[in-house]
Amino acid sequence: MGLKNKTRAPKSLAAGRPPIIHQQKQKTISRKATKALINKHHLLEKRKQQAINNGDEKGEAVIDAEIKALGGLVRYQEASLQGQRHDRGGDSSRVLMQWLEPYLSSGKKAGNENEHERVSLRMLEVGALSTQNACSKSGYFDTIERIDLNSQGEGILQQDFMQRPLPADDSERFDIVSLSLVLNFVPEPKGRGEMLLRTTQFLHLPERYPGSSSPSSCFPSLFLVLPAPCVTNSRYLDEDKLQSIMASIGYQKTASKTTQRLVYYIWKKISACPEVVKPFPKKELRPGGFRNNFAVTLG
């Protein structure tokens, strides 16, 4: 039985991705310490969510105490920002711009004769931590809207993507949406599927763009970055299943890159999301005690 693609109020992400708190001065943390702290914090957050789901208030309180002993959210912020250089692979938008630049630069070099055909490019960056990343400095985007659960400063709107109002018309839609290390913070598989489904509503339809030879042929697209083990070492998700899920909501993979820590994708929206979406339940694909439980479900 298919899933009706109805407009409804999705679950908030606040229970998933830990918020980041402003600080006067950020301390330097070693790469090894950064990785250990982030991994420990994520493990505790996962256990806390399980306790909440089970109604275990005592267990939740014990885990809260462990998180506090680690330094709480303040210490997590320091590790997260350090991790932008180390454990999170640096500025992931550099990879995106490496993929987009050949298309965008060819349009720029075409000169004024094609200026009337130029599309004003708009980007929505979900989970933004900086206004000085590669996309921001590229000069190719007329508008970049940046949102995060807890804004890091001016230029980043404090907003939950799952609660963001849906676009009223094309002026509020985007050419590209970035989900860099955001989907993995959603606490439940169903919520991850809902997030991917929701991105389709913020992108223009493919008909807006010129033919395949145009510099803008890489749009509309979703830039997705995940920790590599979410795809390479999960019991419930592999590359084939991810492609099937994305295809079912109108996306086609146009670029990908896998490193030791991260997987990067560009998913081009090639059709409107169907009213009835094929269900994808949580199903074991690769058994093994050493694998993780990351999953994405629809329906």
Rank of each mutant, 00 (worst) to 15 (best):
S30Y: 06
P206R: 01
Y265M: 07
S138W: 09
I144S: 01
F294E: 05
V277N: 00
V263S: 13
Q50I: 13
S92T: 15
S248L: 04
Y264V: 09
S217T: 12
N292W: 01
D91Y: 03
A69Q: 13
S178Q: 08
E45M: 14
A228N: 13
R17C: 14
R208E: 01
S138A: 11
L242C: 03
C273P: 04
N293H: 11
I52A: 06
I67T: 01
I52C: 03
S105T: 13
Q132F: 10
K241W: 07
R192T: 03
E172G: 00
Y265P: 04
I147Y: 00
P187K: 02
V277T: 04
E239W: 13
E115V: 10
Q163G: 02
M97T: 05
Q159E: 13
F280Q: 00
T28M: 10
S234T: 04
S271P: 00
K278G: 09
M162C: 03
P206G: 00
A295F: 00
I249K: 03
P281W: 04
T200G: 01
K4Q: 14
S138F: 09
V296R: 00
K257D: 13
G16W: 00
I21F: 10
Q50V: 14
K40S: 13
I270L: 05
K283S: 11
R208F: 02
D240E: 15
R291E: 11
P10Y: 15
L157S: 11
I20C: 08
E275S: 14
A69P: 03
S171E: 13
L179D: 09
S138V: 06
T297G: 05
T131M: 08
E78I: 11
S30D: 10
R31M: 13
K40E: 15
E275W: 12
K269R: 10
K268H: 06
K25A: 12
E172C: 09
R85F: 08
I156M: 03
P18W: 07
T28N: 12
S213C: 09
R164A: 04
K4T: 15
A128R: 09
L224Y: 02
